[in-house]
């Protein structure tokens, strides 16, 4: 969680500030689990998100309003309805889902085209690295997909920060 808190500290102009965190990513990436973990809730009873979940979490003096939007293809068109006033975008990637790394990178690329997300810090959460399949493909694919973003997209949308951090 250190990486996240560092971003928060940078943003800490107003100590009472409420922050809006937006969790996006493909289905089964682990967004709801991350949300529950942020809220220190049990993560063993998660169900697929139809629609969205929201939780308010107090963390280091911040009130984080975390929005977790379902990732299945059918509801991805509605993601953009939640862009407004977002302070931080966390994009969750399932590293063990080798087959869909390309799909997830395309979705992310599309997100970054959106004007409403301009100047919004981005955190790419490389989830499930502990799964063996994740470990095996991560090094190869991370370079292929995630870092390729870094090079291609960063010039277009300034102020984006890229992270990959281990759960």
């Amino acid at each position: 969680m250190m990486g996240l808190l560092n971003i928060l500290k940078k943003l800490r102009s107003n100590p009472e500030k409420e922050l809006r965190l937006l969790l996006l990513g493909l289905d089964n990436a682990g967004k709801t689990t991350l949300l529950k973990q942020l809220a220190s809730e049990d993560v063993n009873h998660v169900t697929p998100t139809a629609g969205f979940n929201i939780k308010s979490v107090l963390s280091s003096g911040f009130k984080l309003n975390v929005w977790d939007i379902g990732g299945q293809r059918k509801i991805r068109p509605y993601w953009r309805n939640y862009f407004e006033n977002t302070d931080i975008l966390i994009y969750v990637v399932d590293c063990s889902d080798h087959q869909r790394l390309e799909e997830t990178s395309q979705e992310l690329a599309e997100l970054l085209q959106d004007d409403k997300l301009r100047n919004v810090p981005l955190l790419v959460y490389a989830n499930k690295q502990d799964l063996t399949t994740g470990e095996k493909h991560l090094n190869k694919d991370k370079r292929k997909y995630l870092t390729s973003f870094n090079n291609e997209k960063k010039p277009k949308s300034q102020n984006l920060e890229f992270f990959a951090w281990v759960l």
């Binding site: 289905d27 089964n28 993560v43 063993n44 009873h45 998660v46 169900t47 697929p48 990732g71 299945q72 293809r73 059918k74």
Partner: peptide, 22 residues
């Protein structure tokens, strides 16, 4: 599978915390 309301091409990841009960 999406016709009966699973999220993607393989339902196996949709049962999550509800497991076989779902």
């Amino acid at each position: 599978w999406q016709y009966i309301g699973f999220q993607g091409d393989d339902p196996k990841t949709d049962f999550r915390g509800m497991g076989l009960l779902g």
